[in-house]
C-alpha cells in the first residue's frame, strides 16, 4: 500500500514538471455590427516553432475554443471578405476573448485566382517549378500537370483544346518540330 502511494505521488510530481498545463481560450468572432461569423478560421501559432500549432473554426454562433499551453502564441482570426486580425497571447488561466473583424472592400467582387500561370494575349507562361513535384521523368510528365494542357497516347499535345503543331526548344525546331519525340525523350529536369 505505501508503495502504491509512492508511485502515485511520483507520477504527480512528474506531471507537474514535465507536462505543461493547458488553458482554454474561448470567445466569439463577430463583425462590427455584432453579428456572429460562422466558420471563421482561427490559427494559434506558438512563438517556439517546435511547439504544436493549434486551430479552431467557429460554430454557427461564431464561438471558438482553443486549448493552449502556457507559452506565447500569435493568434490569427480570418474570415473571407474581412480584414485579418492577429494578437499575441500567453495564457496562465482560462480566458475569454471576443474578436471583432472589419469588412474589407475587396471581399465582395468576383475574384479569379489562376494558379501558377500567366496568360498574355497569345502566350501562356507556366511557372513549372510550382506545378511539379520533382517525381517527373520526361517532358510529357511535366506537360500533363500543367493546367489546360493534355498529352495523348501518341505524344500529341493540346492546349485548351487546340492542337500543338510545332514545338520549339530554345527557339529551334526539335527533330523536325514533331511533339512526340520531344515529349518522350527530353528529361524532366531539363525544364526550368
Amino acid at each position: 500500500m505505501p508503495f502504491r502511494l509512492y508511485v502515485l505521488f511520483s507520477f504527480l510530481v512528474l506531471f507537474q514538471t514535465v507536462g505543461f498545463t493547458q488553458n482554454s481560450l474561448t470567445g466569439k468572432v463577430t463583425d462590427s455590427l455584432n453579428k456572429p461569423l460562422a466558420n471563421a478560421n482561427i490559427l494559434a501559432e506558438p512563438k517556439d516553432s517546435l511547439q504544436q500549432i493549434k486551430f479552431a473554426i467557429t460554430d454557427d454562433k461564431g464561438r471558438y475554443r482553443l486549448d493552449l499551453k502556457s507559452i506565447p502564441y500569435t493568434v490569427m482570426a480570418n474570415y473571407l471578405g474581412f480584414a485579418k486580425k492577429s494578437f499575441d497571447i500567453q495564457l496562465d488561466r482560462d480566458k475569454t476573448q471576443d474578436i471583432i473583424l472589419k469588412e474589407s472592400a475587396e471581399g465582395l467582387q468576383e475574384v479569379v485566382l489562376d494558379m501558377p500561370m500567366v496568360v498574355k494575349k497569345d502566350t501562356i507562361l507556366y511557372n513549372v517549378n510550382q506545378l511539379t513535384t520533382g517525381e517527373e521523368r520526361k517532358l510529357k510528365d511535366i506537360l500533363k500537370k500543367l493546367p489546360g494542357m493534355e498529352v495523348d497516347k501518341n505524344g500529341g499535345i493540346t492546349v485548351n483544346g487546340k492542337k500543338v503543331t510545332h514545338m520549339l526548344v530554345e527557339n529551334k525546331k526539335f527533330f523536325g518540330g514533331g511533339t512526340k519525340l520531344a515529349v518522350d525523350n527530353i528529361p524532366a529536369d531539363a525544364v526550368k
Binding site: 473571407l80 471578405g81 471581399g107 465582395l108 467582387q109 468576383e110 475574384v111 479569379v112 485566382l113 489562376d114 494558379m115 506545378l131 513535384t133 500537370k145 493546367p147
Partner: peptide, 12 residues
C-alpha cells in the same frame, strides 16, 4: 495520387 487546385473562383 495528388490533387492540386488549378483554379479558384470566389464570389461567383
Amino acid at each position: 495520387f495528388t490533387l492540386t487546385a488549378i483554379q479558384i473562383n470566389l464570389n461567383i
